[in-house]
């Protein structure tokens, strides 16, 4: 961050220090322009694969396989149409697993977060520790018995298994996140409501839910992202009837044919819901990804 001085400081500085003032916040200098150009260059590099994915999805396969990558071509919707025809059952499964697990997570996590923040139980720290530690256990450690048990009860390739597993996967994040939101409710608000003789249901309906609605929405968003993108359980515990969108994408590595355009269209459509949701909710994303630690 060595920006050249744009203003001079009155105070004489010690010889070892560079005599520069903070043009950091002001920009406009030559250094500032250089940083701006650098930032934009990096942004374009990072975004390029996404841009290329979307662009290739509009090509026909002949345009996708050229030694010199083609930027201009006659766009076609064929690939997207093909993908939509093929992938609809997978998308329905993903939608069901994502929606149902997210609703379940919120229903379980909201009361738990309440018990851990507004009216804390004894050993609150231990319980929080337990929840987060389940998130740290490697999934591979449980996949073998899950496969055996689920197989024994005849539930392989059943969407309900996915719903239960995704609920368990997202529950710790949701508990931590919602707790951080509930802790922000001023104690006086609840006390005032209780003094007025409002019962638990009333307090929830008229005080808690309205105040925490943005927090619930942010939590749900994070759960949706993780459930929609989940692959490990889906590829191991589903076969065809309840396979989700990521499993559909596996089909493209098995085939040796020329499918760049179609797989790009498929990757674009598979990513689209989460990309759009993430763009809209950038702020909530930070809080969710840090499990509520960063506001």
């Amino acid at each position: 961050m060595s920006t050249p001085a744009s203003t001079t400081t009155k105070q004489p500085s010690t010889p070892s220090e560079p005599t520069s003032a903070p043009s950091r916040k002001r920009g406009g200098s030559a250094g500032g322009t250089a940083f701006t150009v650098l930032t934009w260059a990096l942004a374009l590099i990072f975004f390029f694969p996404v841009f290329w994915m979307a662009l290739t999805g509009f090509k026909n396969e002949a345009d996708a396989y050229t030694e010199t990558p083609r930027l201009f071509f006659a766009p076609t919707l064929t690939q997207f149409q093909n993908v939509l025809d093929e992938a609809t059952p997978f998308a329905v499964n993903s939608l069901v697993a994502t929606t149902a697990s997210t609703i379940l997570v919120v229903l379980l996590a909201l009361p738990a977060a309440y018990a851990l923040s507004i009216r804390p139980v004894k050993k609150t720290q231990d319980v929080l520790f337990f929840f987060i530690s389940t998130k740290m256990l490697p999934l591979v450690a449980v996949i073998v018995p899950l496969y055996v048990i689920v197989g024994q009860i005849g539930a392989l390739d059943n969407i309900w298994v996915m719903i239960v597993l995704y609920t368990a996967m997202n529950l710790p994040i949701a508990v931590w996140m919602m707790r951080s939101f509930l802790q922000e409710i001023p104690g006086e608000v609840l006390e005032a409501a209780e003094m007025d003789g409002a019962g638990l249901v009333k307090v929830w309906r008229h005080v808690m839910i309205p105040i925490t609605a943005p927090g619930i929405a942010a939590t749900a968003l994070i759960c949706v992202i993780f459930a929609w993108n989940e692959f490990f359980f889906a590829v191991n515990l589903t076969a065809s009837a309840s396979s989700t969108v990521p499993v559909y994408l596996v089909g493209f590595i098995a085939s040796q044919g020329l499918y760049f355009a179609q797989l790009s269209a498929a990757a674009t459509l598979a990513s689209l819901p989460v990309v759009i949701a993430g763009w809209i909710a950038q702020k909530q994303l930070v809080r969710g990804l840090s499990m509520g630690a960063i506001k």
């Binding site: 996404v50 994408l249 990513s271 950038q282």
Partner: peptide
């Protein structure tokens, strides 16, 4: 806009991202 472009790789489905890197990249 730059910030939005920079966070996008994280939002791409990991399986889709891996598929893209294997093939088109």
């Amino acid at each position: 806009l730059a910030r939005t472009m920079l966070i996008t790789p994280f939002l791409v489905m990991p399986v889709a991202g891996a598929l893209l890197w294997k093939t088109t990249m």
